[in-house]
Design a protein around this nucleic acid. Structure first.
Lengths: 237, 237
DNA sequence: CGGCAGTTTGATGTTACTCAATTTAAGTGG
DNA sequence: CCACTTAAATTGAGTAACATCAAACTGCCG
């Protein structure tokens, strides 16, 4: 719940992996520039990765929000995951140079790219890197499986509640939350594309939540009014 | 399409991983018994793994069909994956002793269990094992992401067509298919729970497919009558 | 022959989608 | 500070997709 041990609080938080690869250099002062690692600032809304393209780098989101998605030919879009600071775009991207998803910045964001070969050689040399990646892999697959249950079995209301809870946990794992107010830079269309309903229906459902005093959502801030009720509706198990 | 190179034809086929761990011993004659690996025969319908329980072994399905699923308290069930011969239950199970899903045998099946510690030490020693596991990991996450797109965006008809195509590809990767006839030991309820619609609706949709001469499904055999039409309906991209 | 599990069919209800109009909010330039 | 513009959210009415319930049907096995 605090930010002392982000990895334990939220195994999805991949800075553990990033730190391991970088040899815990985060705390060091200025260093010799590394040619296999760079940072890039991306404006809000810009596409960072395009599905089916090849990338020599493994990306980690350092600052801001992004999302991983697939866009179909007829315009339908499924958001696979929201990326938060510290998130590796995908474990698969460490092994596959071709991306099977696209990525966009939701807010202005800062992205770190590391040469894949360099990451792999560190993986071969350093068991701590393997362990960090394994943890991220487990968290990622467990998360995908949860999402499959939600998309396959849950009603629209349940899905939206689940998404909010899921993001709340992940946000809380990397910053202190006070008064049930979470930074939340999504548009309703993003929620819609993540849970597989229309934006109109998201609006109606959020409206109902607001009327029932469950959650309230405006201006990029999510206010949780009744955490218990939200969990009753949307939590797995 | 043939069985000369199952890994290439279907990266999901994890025997590559299994072989790597076992040191390519599949072709050898009788050997000294290994205390860290065993085989077990499971009757059709039996549960092999229970969600939230701990297992000291990593499982691979050797013979028969199974499926990986999550059952909710109110009875709803989401099938996450059908397991075919050669499939590792999950990459996550190599790193996590607690299972986040349950597994049942669909037909009579044979399961191989390997001690997790033993698998991990082989992983540390042998780069080929790491490579095999990395391939399986990539295939698994790509597959989960595809499924999220399908569950989130596709109609019932599209979902069912997708599932059939997906299984057909995987079946074809491990056995020769003649005359568009695939072994297919699923009940309609399994299809329903995998794609997130009711069994009644699956029945209607398959009935429509039959009437339109797309596919036909009875007695544990799937007959594909119009592959093109099936792909037009259900294939991604 | 009877029983059982699975499938099919029909009738009806509910959820969520579509289309379109309206309102709100957030800039932007004068 | 205020008109103007634009993106996003809300609301209503009508519709399509899918769920639910219940009954009938099929094939299989003891």
């Amino acid at each position: 719940m605090n930010n002392l041990s982000p990895c334990a609080a939220c195994p999805h938080y991949a800075l553990g992996f990033c730190d391991a690869v970088l040899g815990h250099s985060g705390d060091a002062g200025p260093e010799a520039p590394k040619r296999w690692q760079y940072h890039r600032v991306v404006p809000a809304g810009d596409q960072i990765v395009a599905r089916n393209h090849r990338y020599p780098d493994v990306f980690v989101l350092c600052v801001g929000w992004g999302f991983r998605f697939v866009q179909l030919a007829d315009g339908r879009r499924q958001i696979l995951q929201f990326l938060l600071p510290g998130d590796l775009f995908s474990v698969a991207s460490v092994f596959e140079e071709r991306a099977h998803f696209s990525v966009k910045a939701l807010t202005e964001a800062q992205v770190s790219g590391m040469r894949r070969g360099e990451v792999k050689s560190r993986l071969a040399e350093n068991p701590a890197v393997v362990a960090a990646l394994a943890r991220t892999c487990s968290a990622e697959t467990e998360c995908s499986d949860e999402m499959a249950v939600v998309l396959g079995q849950y009603s629209a209301e349940e899905r939206i509640a689940f998404l909010l809870l899921h993001l709340m946990r992940r946000i809380a794992a990397r910053s202190v939350i006070r008064g049930g107010q979470y930074p939340f830079p999504l548009r309703q269309q993003h929620i819609a594309d993540a849970v597989g309903v229309t934006a109109v229906h998201v609006s109606r459902t959020l409206g109902a939540f607001r009327d029932r005093g469950v959650v309230e959502f405006s201006n990029g801030v999510l206010r949780v009014l009744d955490q218990n009720e939200l969990e009753r509706i949307g939590s797995l198990n």
